[in-house]
């Protein structure tokens, strides 16, 4: 049973190498590109007038936040989860619930959602100390089904698993911004914060601990890393990100929904697709992946004459193909290509 043992000889995914290389100070070109992307992203809802398009990109940003969370866990720490939509659901539920029952404003619910999800993530991380690899995937798969089922059973009123805050409470509090722009800029701001946070984590001692645990658990222990604490931290961070994504989804979708356990499972897989396609263990990869997944999910039915199953077919196949041919995802592949081009004379 070779695969049940920790693959001690397994090389790290190739994407890990470029990540550590980027630590060597920011260069000007990168800063310029970053500023241009930021400006374009911020200007987007003011330039594009179509509400549906802005909404789609906004949901893509939210998907990206969730994927960045999963990336901390799966990409950097090597703990696979196919149930992170559970935290997304918890986050959405907390926000909707606090808005309805406690009359909080949307933004005021976010700290609660993030904190509670971090605690929930740490709790889920506990079994992960004993359960590894595919078995962990199985446990998290259970989580993706369990959470919406329980929310549906114990959190719904009269069998309806939809929580809708008053629409007016989700409207833009800033006069200068339309509702559409507000519902885009808030997720964008959240994404920027999450991006900076992730960058700092990954490039810190804690981040190197995550990577060490992924690459060689035993060696990490001997290097003085507390493997248990590191894994639990990774779970907490990833769950907090996904919870934030769930809360933001209430802002854009106007509701928290726990009616379909299978939808949660699918969402969890989509997070994974976003991570793998964008670039496992890269900071920006999941953003790219999240946007791609969301756009594909919304547009594929249109392209294929409303065929049921086209979007999951493309995404599922993309997951297989990318994992197979481009283990570093789009961003990892791009970096490899760049490295090859710059190295040759």
């Amino acid at each position: 049973m070779s695969a049940t043992e920790t693959p001690s000889t397994a090389p790290a995914p190739e994407a890990a190498i470029p990540t550590s290389r980027t630590t060597s100070g920011p260069d000007l070109a990168k800063i310029v590109i970053g500023v241009v992307i930021m400006a374009a992203a911020a200007a987007f809802p003011f330039v594009v007038d179509d509400t549906a398009t802005v909404r789609m990109v906004s949901l893509g940003l939210i998907m990206a936040i969730g994927a960045m969370g999963l990336n901390v866990l799966t990409g950097y720490t090597g703990q696979i989860s196919i149930g992170h939509a559970a935290f997304y659901g918890i986050g959405a539920y907390i926000t909707a619930n606090l808005m309805i029952e406690q009359k909080l404003t949307f933004l005021a619910t976010l700290p609660f959602s993030v904190l509670i999800c971090a605690v929930a993530g740490a709790l889920v991380g506990l079994p992960a100390l004993r359960v590894k690899g595919p078995a962990l995937a199985l446990v998290t798969l259970g989580l993706a089904i369990l959470v919406p089922t329980l929310l549906h059973k114990f959190g719904s009123s009269g069998g309806v698993a939809l929580w809708k805050p008053k629409r007016s409470h989700l409207n833009s509090p800033v006069d200068a911004l339309t509702n559409t722009q507000w519902k885009y800029l808030v997720p964008l701001a959240a994404l920027v914060i999450v991006y900076v946070l992730t960058r700092n984590i990954v490039h810190s001692r804690a981040g190197r601990a995550l990577i060490a645990v992924r690459d060689q658990e035993v060696a990490a222990t001997t290097a003085g890393i507390n493997v248990a604490a590191t894994k639990i931290t990774a779970f907490a961070i990833s769950a907090a990100y996904c919870g934030l994504a769930g809360s933001l989804s209430v802002l854009v979708r106007g509701q928290a929904d726990a009616s379909s356990a299978l939808a949660y499972f699918q969402m969890s897989i989509y997070f994974l697709v976003a991570v793998v396609v964008g670039g496992t263990a890269t900071i920006a990869g999941p953003i790219l992946g999240g946007l791609l997944v969301q756009i594909l999910d919304e547009k594929a039915p249109d392209w294929s004459g409303n065929k049921v199953g086209m979007a999951p077919f493309i995404l599922g196949t993309a997951l297989v193909v990318i994992a197979y041919f481009l283990p570093g995802g789009i961003l990892g592949g791009y970096r490899q290509l760049k490295a090859k081009l710059t190295r040759s004379p």
Partner: peptide, 8 residues
């Protein structure tokens, strides 16, 4: 990935 794509 096979799970999702086969179902689809």
């Amino acid at each position: 990935g096979l799970f999702i794509s086969m179902n689809a």
